[in-house]
Design a protein around this nucleic acid. Structure first.
Length: 216
DNA sequence: CAGTCGATTCACT
DNA sequence: GTGAATCGACTGA
């Protein structure tokens, strides 16, 4: 028998903690996205922590800019960025306000609205791939820069909300180096700030940072 | 203002 | 496993 997930919203205090505390605690929680088609619910299975001022891998490392502005704001809000000219990735800002720390949502299991997610992810070969990877996750949910700054803890009719879900027992949480982050590969400081649920089929494969070759 | 590159994914070999 | 796609943000001159 599987317990149905708790649909209580996560309070802002949940996010107003150090990012390394929040990140593993997000596993098993549920993100609900309201779309014109219908709601899509995602159970988070993989996340990554980025800790602004001390973290060369963070977009906030070199200070506040128009793009990363939301990271410097209050916890519980969504930071969405555009990358590689075609993809979006989404984060949840953590506390304390102004520290510019955030958790990248890297993968999840679609537990509601699968039909809508499939429509957005035509290249997915099976449902485990619908949100296996940060850009795939954002695509499946229809998340783009228009949602940058959205408060995921707000009441009322909002496009995104974080729910309590069912937290994962600590012995089911794994962690390791972050994926695709420059300087995380071996020579520099390695931050084992990627967290995932053990043996979950929706978790994305690890990949070391690979600098792009020059075009001719 | 030009050069570089990215918290990635997909199609192919 | 390798390379292309594709564009905006950021850097440094």
């Amino acid at each position: 028998m599987i317990a149905s997930p708790d649909r209580t919203p996560l309070p802002r205090e949940f996010f107003d903690r150090p990012v390394l505390e929040v990140a593993p605690d997000l596993l098993g929680r549920i993100l609900v996205r309201g779309t014109p088609d219908g709601p899509i619910a995602l159970r988070l299975t993989e996340v990554e922590a980025y800790d602004g001022p001390n973290d060369p891998g963070s977009h906030a490392y070199r200070g506040r800019t128009p793009r990363n502005d939301v990271m410097f704001g209050p916890p519980g809000h969504v930071y969405v960025y555009f990358t590689y000219g075609m993809w979006h990735c989404m984060n949840l800002v953590c506390g304390p306000e102004g520290r510019a720390s955030a958790v990248l949502l890297r993968a999840g299991e679609v537990i509601e609205g699968v039909e809508w997610a499939r429509k957005r992810r035509l290249s997915a070969r099976n449902d485990n791939e619908l949100a296996k990877g940060p850009a795939r996750l954002a695509t499946a949910l229809g998340v783009d820069r228009a949602l940058d700054g959205t408060d995921a803890c707000a009441a009322g009719d909002i496009p995104l909300r974080m729910l309590t879900g069912t937290p994962v027992p600590p012995d089911q949480v794994r962690n390791g180096p972050r994926t695709g982050v420059a300087g995380e590969g071996g020579n520099g400081d390695v931050h084992p700030w990627r967290y995932w649920i053990a043996d979950d089929p929706t978790v994305s494969p690890y990949r070391a940072h690979a600098p792009r070759r020059r075009r001719s």
